[in-house]
């Protein structure tokens, strides 16, 4: 509560809001549109609330951050410059994904490596199983009958009933 005030505070009549950028459209004359701002905001995360993209975060703080994006756009900054500015200001957590450098590169490296190892193991397992001749004993193989399809269904049912 102490941390975040909601946008709806404005209906309570906070005077402070007279200079708020909550309604950025007043900069509509040729300036960046709300959509221009949201394109960048969508790829940034609110620095104080957890895991909420900046373009949909309803708090007043987020309104201010969107206003900041607008200010920077007016100054002619590029998307990357704005993102870098946010990282400098608020730390790497504002990015939807950590930059792939240093220790954090691990987040991208590990999954494909694990996948490759897993695929290799799966391949080895399957090959190992294949070595044996087809089931000498144990639960049997499909038997042909007048309709192979229905026979197979019936047989699977029998197996389940064992």
């Amino acid at each position: 509560m102490r941390k975040l005030q909601t946008v709806m505070g404005m209906t309570l009549g906070f005077i402070l809001l007279s200079q708020v950028f909550a309604l950025p459209a007043f900069a509509q004359d040729g300036g960046p549109t709300d959509d221009d701002v949201n394109v960048i905001a969508r790829e940034l995360y609110c620095p104080v609330c957890e895991n909420i993209p900046l373009d949909v975060c309803p708090t007043q703080a987020c309104e201010q951050w969107r206003a900041t994006i607008r200010e920077k756009l007016v100054l002619g900054w590029s998307d990357d410059q704005i993102k870098d500015y946010f990282v400098d200001q608020y730390g790497p957590r504002v990015l939807a994904e950590p930059p792939a450098e240093g220790f954090n590169a691990l987040v991208y490296i590990l999954p494909p490596v694990l996948f490759a190892i897993g695929a290799f193991i799966l391949f080895m397992v399957m090959r190992a199983w294949k070595v044996e001749p087809p089931t000498p004993k144990g639960k049997g193989v499909t038997v042909e009958s007048e309709d192979p399809y229905i026979a197979q269904l019936e047989q699977e049912l029998r197996r389940r009933d064992e």
Partner: peptide, 19 residues
Amino acid sequence: FPLISELVTGQKITVGPPF
């Protein structure tokens, strides 16, 4: 990973939808 990363680098990070 964010838990591990914070332990190692001391910085909070987000792993979000694109990942």
